[in-house]
Amino acid sequence: MSADFYEAEGARPTVAVYGAAGHTGRFVLQELSRRGFPIIAIGRNAVRLTALSLPDGTRRVVATFDDAAAVGRALHGAAALINCAGPFLDSAAPLVSAALRAGIPYLDITAEQASAQAVFERFGLAAEQAGVVIIPAMGFWGGLGDLLATAAMGDWVQADTIRLNIALDSWNPTEGTRITGQRNTARRLIVSDGRLQPLADPAPQHTWSFAAPFGRQEMAEVPLSETILLSRHLQVGEIHNYVNTASLRELADPTTPPPTAADEWGRSAQIFLVDVEVRQGDKVRRKAARGQDIYAITAPLVVEAVQRILTSPDQRNGAFAPGDLFDAPSFLAALAPQLELW
Protein backbone atom coordinates (compact mmCIF):
# COMPACT_ATOMS: atom_id res chain seq x y z
CA MET A 1 0.00 0.00 0.00
CA SER A 2 1.13 3.55 -0.65
CA ALA A 3 2.16 6.21 1.82
CA ASP A 4 -0.95 8.13 0.76
CA PHE A 5 -3.17 5.30 2.05
CA TYR A 6 -1.57 5.31 5.48
CA GLU A 7 -1.84 9.08 5.76
CA ALA A 8 -5.47 9.14 4.61
CA GLU A 9 -6.64 6.24 6.76
CA GLY A 10 -4.58 7.10 9.82
CA ALA A 11 -3.33 3.52 9.72
CA ARG A 12 0.09 2.12 10.49
CA PRO A 13 1.50 -0.74 8.41
CA THR A 14 2.42 -3.98 10.15
CA VAL A 15 6.13 -4.64 10.66
CA ALA A 16 7.52 -8.15 11.10
CA VAL A 17 10.55 -8.63 13.36
CA TYR A 18 12.60 -11.79 13.05
CA GLY A 19 14.66 -12.56 16.15
CA ALA A 20 11.98 -10.77 18.15
CA ALA A 21 12.82 -12.51 21.43
CA GLY A 22 16.51 -11.67 21.29
CA HIS A 23 18.15 -8.89 23.27
CA THR A 24 18.11 -6.28 20.48
CA GLY A 25 14.90 -7.63 19.02
CA ARG A 26 13.06 -6.72 22.22
CA PHE A 27 14.25 -3.12 21.94
CA VAL A 28 13.01 -3.04 18.34
CA LEU A 29 9.60 -4.36 19.39
CA GLN A 30 9.43 -1.71 22.08
CA GLU A 31 10.26 1.08 19.61
CA LEU A 32 7.75 -0.14 17.04
CA SER A 33 5.07 -0.31 19.71
CA ARG A 34 5.94 3.18 20.95
CA ARG A 35 5.42 4.51 17.43
CA GLY A 36 2.12 2.70 17.01
CA PHE A 37 3.15 0.02 14.50
CA PRO A 38 1.29 -3.30 14.60
CA ILE A 39 3.84 -6.10 14.98
CA ILE A 40 4.42 -9.68 13.89
CA ALA A 41 6.96 -11.17 16.33
CA ILE A 42 8.82 -14.06 14.72
CA GLY A 43 11.43 -16.27 16.34
CA ARG A 44 12.82 -19.77 16.68
CA ASN A 45 12.00 -20.34 20.35
CA ALA A 46 8.32 -20.69 21.28
CA VAL A 47 8.97 -20.30 25.01
CA ARG A 48 10.86 -17.04 24.60
CA LEU A 49 8.25 -15.68 22.18
CA THR A 50 5.44 -16.50 24.59
CA ALA A 51 7.26 -14.71 27.40
CA LEU A 52 7.42 -11.42 25.48
CA SER A 53 5.30 -8.55 26.77
CA LEU A 54 3.54 -7.29 23.65
CA PRO A 55 0.45 -5.23 22.78
CA ASP A 56 -2.84 -7.08 22.45
CA GLY A 57 -3.35 -8.50 18.99
CA THR A 58 0.34 -9.00 18.25
CA ARG A 59 0.97 -12.15 16.22
CA ARG A 60 3.67 -14.47 17.59
CA VAL A 61 5.01 -16.91 15.02
CA VAL A 62 7.58 -19.66 15.48
CA ALA A 63 9.64 -20.18 12.32
CA THR A 64 13.23 -21.07 11.54
CA PHE A 65 14.78 -18.78 8.94
CA ASP A 66 15.68 -21.71 6.70
CA ASP A 67 12.03 -22.87 6.49
CA ALA A 68 10.87 -20.80 3.52
CA ALA A 69 7.24 -21.88 3.76
CA ALA A 70 6.98 -21.07 7.48
CA VAL A 71 8.63 -17.68 7.05
CA GLY A 72 6.37 -16.92 4.11
CA ARG A 73 3.29 -17.65 6.22
CA ALA A 74 4.70 -15.54 9.06
CA LEU A 75 5.11 -12.55 6.75
CA HIS A 76 1.47 -12.60 5.61
CA GLY A 77 0.13 -9.09 6.15
CA ALA A 78 3.55 -7.56 6.87
CA ALA A 79 4.63 -4.34 5.14
CA ALA A 80 8.32 -4.68 6.11
CA LEU A 81 10.73 -7.16 7.69
CA ILE A 82 13.42 -6.30 10.27
CA ASN A 83 15.94 -9.09 10.86
CA CYS A 84 17.53 -9.01 14.34
CA ALA A 85 18.77 -12.63 14.32
CA GLY A 86 22.50 -13.08 14.02
CA PRO A 87 24.76 -14.51 12.86
CA PHE A 88 23.58 -12.70 9.75
CA LEU A 89 25.97 -14.75 7.64
CA ASP A 90 23.36 -17.48 8.19
CA SER A 91 20.05 -15.62 8.49
CA ALA A 92 20.32 -12.74 6.01
CA ALA A 93 20.12 -14.58 2.66
CA PRO A 94 17.03 -16.70 3.42
CA LEU A 95 15.21 -13.78 5.02
CA VAL A 96 16.06 -11.35 2.20
CA SER A 97 14.73 -13.99 -0.20
CA ALA A 98 11.54 -14.25 1.85
CA ALA A 99 11.08 -10.47 1.83
CA LEU A 100 11.56 -10.36 -1.94
CA ARG A 101 8.95 -13.09 -2.43
CA ALA A 102 6.57 -11.12 -0.20
CA GLY A 103 7.38 -7.86 -2.02
CA ILE A 104 8.31 -5.99 1.17
CA PRO A 105 11.38 -4.06 2.39
CA TYR A 106 14.10 -5.90 4.32
CA LEU A 107 16.41 -4.34 6.91
CA ASP A 108 18.90 -5.97 9.26
CA ILE A 109 21.36 -4.81 11.93
CA THR A 110 24.50 -6.76 11.06
CA ALA A 111 28.00 -5.73 12.04
CA GLU A 112 29.35 -8.52 9.82
CA GLN A 113 31.11 -7.17 6.75
CA ALA A 114 30.76 -10.40 4.78
CA SER A 115 27.01 -10.52 5.33
CA ALA A 116 26.43 -6.89 4.34
CA GLN A 117 28.62 -7.26 1.24
CA ALA A 118 26.86 -10.47 0.20
CA VAL A 119 23.43 -8.86 0.53
CA PHE A 120 24.45 -5.99 -1.75
CA GLU A 121 26.07 -8.24 -4.34
CA ARG A 122 23.48 -11.00 -4.38
CA PHE A 123 20.21 -9.11 -3.94
CA GLY A 124 20.71 -5.53 -5.16
CA LEU A 125 19.41 -6.08 -8.69
CA ALA A 126 16.63 -8.38 -7.52
CA ALA A 127 15.42 -5.75 -5.04
CA GLU A 128 15.35 -3.08 -7.73
CA GLN A 129 13.42 -5.35 -10.07
CA ALA A 130 10.99 -6.34 -7.31
CA GLY A 131 10.39 -2.69 -6.40
CA VAL A 132 11.49 -3.01 -2.76
CA VAL A 133 14.19 -1.57 -0.50
CA ILE A 134 16.96 -3.58 1.16
CA ILE A 135 19.24 -2.08 3.80
CA PRO A 136 21.77 -4.28 5.58
CA ALA A 137 23.49 -3.03 8.76
CA MET A 138 20.90 -0.43 9.79
CA GLY A 139 21.99 -0.45 13.45
CA PHE A 140 24.61 1.00 15.78
CA TRP A 141 27.30 -0.91 13.91
CA GLY A 142 27.07 0.12 10.28
CA GLY A 143 24.15 2.50 9.95
CA LEU A 144 25.06 5.08 12.58
CA GLY A 145 28.62 5.51 11.34
CA ASP A 146 27.48 5.65 7.73
CA LEU A 147 24.96 8.40 8.50
CA LEU A 148 27.47 10.41 10.56
CA ALA A 149 30.15 10.19 7.86
CA THR A 150 27.63 11.14 5.16
CA ALA A 151 26.51 14.14 7.20
CA ALA A 152 30.13 15.16 7.77
CA MET A 153 30.86 14.93 4.04
CA GLY A 154 28.08 17.43 3.37
CA ASP A 155 28.54 18.96 -0.07
CA TRP A 156 31.90 17.30 -0.74
CA VAL A 157 31.68 14.87 -3.65
CA GLN A 158 34.88 13.11 -2.62
CA ALA A 159 37.24 12.88 0.34
CA ASP A 160 40.74 11.61 0.96
CA THR A 161 40.07 9.85 4.27
CA ILE A 162 37.24 8.90 6.60
CA ARG A 163 38.15 7.76 10.11
CA LEU A 164 35.50 6.46 12.47
CA ASN A 165 36.59 6.33 16.12
CA ILE A 166 34.21 4.50 18.45
CA ALA A 167 34.53 4.51 22.24
CA LEU A 168 32.49 2.40 24.67
CA ASP A 169 32.88 2.91 28.41
CA SER A 170 32.12 -0.80 28.83
CA TRP A 171 31.15 -3.72 26.64
CA ASN A 172 29.00 -6.43 28.14
CA PRO A 173 28.29 -8.56 25.07
CA THR A 174 25.03 -10.40 24.50
CA GLU A 175 24.93 -14.11 23.77
CA GLY A 176 24.20 -13.21 20.15
CA THR A 177 27.32 -11.04 19.95
CA ARG A 178 29.48 -13.88 21.22
CA ILE A 179 27.96 -16.45 18.84
CA THR A 180 28.38 -14.07 15.90
CA GLY A 181 32.02 -13.43 16.82
CA GLN A 182 32.72 -17.16 16.76
CA ARG A 183 30.92 -17.60 13.44
CA ASN A 184 32.40 -14.58 11.69
CA THR A 185 35.89 -15.64 10.61
CA ALA A 186 35.96 -13.66 7.34
CA ARG A 187 39.01 -11.46 6.71
CA ARG A 188 38.19 -7.87 7.66
CA LEU A 189 38.30 -5.23 4.94
CA ILE A 190 39.32 -1.57 4.83
CA VAL A 191 39.18 0.90 1.97
CA SER A 192 42.63 1.84 0.71
CA ASP A 193 43.51 3.41 -2.64
CA GLY A 194 39.78 3.74 -3.23
CA ARG A 195 38.96 0.02 -3.05
CA LEU A 196 38.24 -2.70 -0.51
CA GLN A 197 41.40 -4.43 0.69
CA PRO A 198 42.27 -6.81 3.56
CA LEU A 199 43.19 -5.30 6.92
CA ALA A 200 46.87 -5.54 7.81
CA ASP A 201 47.93 -8.06 10.45
CA PRO A 202 48.48 -7.02 13.19
CA ALA A 203 45.72 -4.41 13.12
CA PRO A 204 47.00 -0.80 13.26
CA GLN A 205 46.57 1.14 16.51
CA HIS A 206 46.54 4.82 17.41
CA THR A 207 45.25 7.18 20.10
CA TRP A 208 42.25 9.50 19.84
CA SER A 209 41.02 12.37 22.00
CA PHE A 210 37.27 12.11 22.58
CA ALA A 211 34.90 14.47 24.30
CA ALA A 212 33.78 13.67 27.85
CA PRO A 213 33.50 11.20 29.44
CA PHE A 214 36.21 9.40 27.46
CA GLY A 215 39.15 11.73 26.86
CA ARG A 216 42.24 10.19 25.29
CA GLN A 217 41.82 6.53 24.33
CA GLU A 218 44.00 3.79 22.88
CA MET A 219 42.34 2.55 19.69
CA ALA A 220 42.66 -0.53 17.48
CA GLU A 221 41.45 -0.80 13.89
CA VAL A 222 38.38 -3.06 13.77
CA PRO A 223 36.60 -2.70 10.42
CA LEU A 224 32.92 -3.57 10.67
CA SER A 225 29.92 -3.07 8.39
CA GLU A 226 30.44 0.73 8.28
CA THR A 227 33.25 0.15 5.77
CA ILE A 228 31.00 -1.80 3.42
CA LEU A 229 28.20 0.78 3.59
CA LEU A 230 30.44 3.79 3.05
CA SER A 231 32.27 2.17 0.15
CA ARG A 232 28.94 1.73 -1.64
CA HIS A 233 28.10 5.40 -2.07
CA LEU A 234 30.98 7.74 -1.13
CA GLN A 235 34.10 8.48 -3.16
CA VAL A 236 36.82 8.12 -0.53
CA GLY A 237 40.44 7.04 -0.85
CA GLU A 238 40.83 5.62 2.67
CA ILE A 239 38.21 4.39 5.18
CA HIS A 240 39.31 3.20 8.62
CA ASN A 241 37.28 2.17 11.65
CA TYR A 242 38.73 2.09 15.19
CA VAL A 243 37.34 0.88 18.54
CA ASN A 244 38.87 1.68 21.93
CA THR A 245 40.99 -1.19 23.21
CA ALA A 246 39.55 -1.08 26.74
CA SER A 247 36.14 -2.19 25.45
CA LEU A 248 37.72 -4.77 23.13
CA ARG A 249 39.43 -6.40 26.11
CA GLU A 250 36.06 -6.74 27.85
CA LEU A 251 34.56 -8.24 24.70
CA ALA A 252 37.38 -10.77 24.44
CA ASP A 253 37.11 -11.81 28.10
CA PRO A 254 34.81 -14.88 28.31
CA THR A 255 33.95 -13.99 31.92
CA THR A 256 32.46 -10.59 31.03
CA PRO A 257 28.73 -10.86 31.85
CA PRO A 258 25.93 -9.89 29.45
CA PRO A 259 24.29 -6.45 29.73
CA THR A 260 21.86 -5.75 32.56
CA ALA A 261 19.02 -3.23 32.62
CA ALA A 262 19.78 0.08 34.34
CA ASP A 263 16.65 2.11 33.52
CA GLU A 264 12.94 1.72 32.91
CA TRP A 265 13.47 1.08 29.19
CA GLY A 266 15.78 -1.84 29.85
CA ARG A 267 18.91 -0.08 28.64
CA SER A 268 22.26 -0.88 30.21
CA ALA A 269 24.36 1.91 31.72
CA GLN A 270 26.86 1.68 28.84
CA ILE A 271 27.81 5.00 27.19
CA PHE A 272 29.10 5.20 23.61
CA LEU A 273 30.64 7.97 21.53
CA VAL A 274 31.16 7.80 17.77
CA ASP A 275 33.53 10.46 16.42
CA VAL A 276 33.87 10.69 12.62
CA GLU A 277 36.60 12.68 10.89
CA VAL A 278 36.53 13.40 7.14
CA ARG A 279 39.60 14.88 5.43
CA GLN A 280 39.93 16.50 2.02
CA GLY A 281 43.43 17.87 1.54
CA ASP A 282 44.05 20.22 4.48
CA LYS A 283 40.31 20.56 5.23
CA VAL A 284 38.74 18.57 8.06
CA ARG A 285 35.10 18.00 8.96
CA ARG A 286 33.90 16.11 12.03
CA LYS A 287 30.59 14.76 13.29
CA ALA A 288 30.04 12.99 16.58
CA ALA A 289 27.20 11.27 18.42
CA ARG A 290 26.89 10.16 22.02
CA GLY A 291 24.25 7.94 23.59
CA GLN A 292 23.44 5.06 25.90
CA ASP A 293 23.60 1.34 25.11
CA ILE A 294 24.71 0.23 21.64
CA TYR A 295 22.03 -2.47 21.49
CA ALA A 296 19.20 -0.17 22.54
CA ILE A 297 20.10 2.67 20.13
CA THR A 298 19.82 0.22 17.25
CA ALA A 299 16.04 0.19 17.73
CA PRO A 300 15.30 3.86 16.87
CA LEU A 301 17.82 3.66 14.04
CA VAL A 302 16.20 0.73 12.26
CA VAL A 303 12.62 1.73 13.08
CA GLU A 304 13.16 5.29 11.84
CA ALA A 305 14.46 3.78 8.60
CA VAL A 306 11.40 1.54 8.25
CA GLN A 307 9.06 4.44 8.95
CA ARG A 308 10.72 6.62 6.31
CA ILE A 309 10.63 3.83 3.73
CA LEU A 310 6.96 3.06 4.31
CA THR A 311 5.83 6.70 4.26
CA SER A 312 7.91 8.11 1.40
CA PRO A 313 5.80 8.79 -1.71
CA ASP A 314 8.83 8.80 -4.04
CA GLN A 315 10.83 5.95 -2.51
CA ARG A 316 13.71 4.57 -4.60
CA ASN A 317 14.08 0.79 -4.79
CA GLY A 318 17.11 -1.48 -4.57
CA ALA A 319 19.83 -2.20 -2.01
CA PHE A 320 21.18 0.89 -0.25
CA ALA A 321 23.44 2.18 2.46
CA PRO A 322 21.38 4.44 4.74
CA GLY A 323 23.39 7.55 3.87
CA ASP A 324 22.64 6.92 0.19
CA LEU A 325 18.89 6.50 0.67
CA PHE A 326 18.08 9.03 3.41
CA ASP A 327 18.95 12.64 4.13
CA ALA A 328 21.58 11.99 6.80
CA PRO A 329 21.28 15.23 8.84
CA SER A 330 17.50 15.04 9.18
CA PHE A 331 17.62 11.32 9.95
CA LEU A 332 20.15 11.83 12.76
CA ALA A 333 18.20 14.80 14.14
CA ALA A 334 15.09 12.60 14.33
CA LEU A 335 16.87 10.33 16.83
CA ALA A 336 16.96 12.97 19.57
CA PRO A 337 16.90 12.74 22.53
CA GLN A 338 18.29 9.17 22.39
CA LEU A 339 21.24 10.49 20.39
CA GLU A 340 23.21 13.62 21.22
CA LEU A 341 24.91 15.18 18.18
CA TRP A 342 27.63 17.74 17.74
Score class of each variant (00 low, 15 high):
S2C: 06
S2Y: 09
A3L: 01
E7V: 13
A8Y: 10
E9Y: 03
G10K: 06
A11S: 15
A16K: 04
A20H: 03
G22A: 05
G25W: 01
R34K: 14
R35P: 11
F37Q: 11
F37W: 09
R44K: 06
A46K: 13
L49I: 04
A51D: 15
A51G: 12
L54A: 10
A63P: 01
D66Y: 08
D67R: 07
A68G: 12
A68P: 03
V71Y: 04
G72S: 13
R73D: 14
H76N: 14
H76A: 15
A78F: 10
A78E: 09
L81W: 03
L81V: 09
N83D: 14
C84A: 09
F88K: 03
A92Q: 03
P94S: 08
V96A: 05
S97C: 08
A102F: 12
L107T: 06
A111K: 07
Q113T: 10
Q113N: 12
A114N: 11
A116G: 09
E121P: 04
F123E: 04
L125F: 03
E128D: 08
V132N: 12
I134H: 02
P136M: 12
G142S: 05
G143V: 06
G145T: 03
L148A: 06
A152H: 13
G154I: 10
D160M: 11
T161R: 15
R163Y: 04
L164G: 08
I166F: 08
A167F: 08
S170T: 14
E175T: 10
R178A: 14
R178H: 05
I179G: 00
R183L: 06
R183H: 15
A186W: 07
I190A: 10
G194I: 14
L199C: 01
D201L: 12
P202F: 00
P204D: 10
H206F: 02
W208V: 11
W208H: 15
W208D: 02
A211R: 11
P213T: 06
F214M: 00
Q217V: 03
T227D: 00
I228S: 11
L229K: 06
R232K: 15
H233A: 12
H233S: 04
E238I: 14
I239A: 02
V243E: 03
V243T: 07
L248D: 07
L248Q: 02
L248H: 01
R249C: 01
R249W: 02
R249M: 05
R249N: 04
T255W: 11
T255H: 13
P258I: 10
P258Q: 05
A261M: 09
V276W: 13
Q280K: 13
D282N: 15
G291K: 04
D293C: 05
I294E: 03
Y295P: 06
A299P: 01
V302F: 00
V306N: 05
Q307D: 15
I309R: 00
L310T: 12
Q315E: 02
R316P: 15
F320K: 03
A321F: 09
P322A: 00
F326V: 08
D327Q: 11
Q338Y: 13
Q338S: 10
L339M: 12
L341R: 10
W342L: 11
